[in-house]
Design a protein around this nucleic acid. Sequence first.
RNA 1: GGUAGGUUACCCAAGUGGCCAACGGGGGCAGACUGUAAAUCUGCUGGCUUACGCCUUCAAUGGUUCGAAUCCAUUACCUACCA
Length: 430
Amino acid sequence: MSILEELKWRGLVADCTDETELTKKISAPITLYCGFDPTADSLHVGNLVPLLALRRFQLLGHFPIAVAGGATGSIGDPSGKTQERQLLTKEILDRNIASVKVQLAKLLDFETKKNPARLVDNASWTQNISYLDFLRDIGKHFSVNQMVAKESVRARMEDREVGISYTEFSYMLLQAFDFMVLARDQNCELQIGGSDQWGNITAGIDLCRKKLGKTVFGLTLPLITNADGTKFGKTEAGAIWLDPKRTSVYKFYQFWINTDDRDVIRYLKFFTFLSREEIESLEKQHTENPGARIAHKALAKEVCHLIHGDNATVGVMLASDVLFGGSVEKISEEDFNEIAGEVPTKEIEKSKLDGAGIPLVELLVHAGLCQSKGQARKDIEGGGVNINNVREASATRSVTSNDLLFGKHILLRKGKKNYVVVTARRNGAA
RNA sequence: GGUAGGUUACCCAAGUGGCCAACGGGGGCAGACUGUAAAUCUGCUGGCUUACGCCUUCAAUGGUUCGAAUCCAUUACCUACCA
């Protein structure tokens, strides 16, 4: 199966330039690139689709280049944004690039002899070019009339409230310049990106033709949407990040497990490397018995494995199985200690549990499950709070050492799926 | 620059002197039903309090009043029409 067929089957082609030509081109290995702007110190699940697409190309023998946007990131892409962006400081940008590079490196293969991936920073060729040279060599090839017509710019021009700065307006030129440099120096012939990148990509294609007389291609990946109309990858608490320091592995796993039924098969295609046969088999099982959630589990396991590796995945799977398996009462001490590190955990000084103990409402706030004591009280009265998986209806209840499991832990739950393990530690211990 | 109108909680939006911590909708949280779904139904949704209640909020500041989101003045921002 060619890469194009593969992507199409997965529903990963939103748009594509000259498909017939590209199909011919792609029958032999080609070099392609995708850019990632370091807007934060971690990528999030929304970046995953293009990143995994690069890898899909690599697996089928093509040469992927991941471009870290040191230059473009310092400008800010107006695509898909309704507001002018705050520019990042140089220090933040440097830090972001460093961490994003590490994440990019993890998902591509740089070691293989056959078609190793490359990672470059577009600052390396943008930094030393002078403004005048850029205007003369690159700017001359762009018509403002055309630029203004591009969706990303037009949307902002029509909104008199926010407008668009000259800086962001110029973003397109920088990205087009990237494509041209890569086409010229690395023989890169294809750029991929999210569907909001279409305008930037075609700008690059035009530039390559004018400047190099070369025909290059563009392919965009669809914007992922949830079946309920909400934005993919965002929860109330914020984005789901790839960095476990920002989004714990447990939360990451839970995010995928909680995928809407209607989305799960699509997401298996988007986010995993499972084969067509495997996914079709999962789809069959899912349709026959959605309650078993086999597809959800496969999705969560695969993506978690991809991002966080084997050990972490095994850990959170165990934790999730135990907590949601139905029989938390019968949990063994060994298992409990195992999962204590996986689910959100808070410590408390053991002495606070002595005697009368600590009011439950305070403990809930301390554990971060409730925003305020008043809210905690309401949650308890509404029947939403469980201690060691036993519903607690009394808002005046205190928690004491008697509630400790294995003399060490208290399992708090708010609602159906918000668990926190509170671990008692001896006074003075760190 | 002129004139008219606006600024209310996470968002939209009612309220034009006391019955206002403030109608309604959305979102969120929780409960029931389930499968850690979806849909539906129910409760909650400023803080403190076991509770009576207390405290802080209706753009900002100052004022009138026994009493202000509501009236007056000033400031800031926004919208529309005119220049």
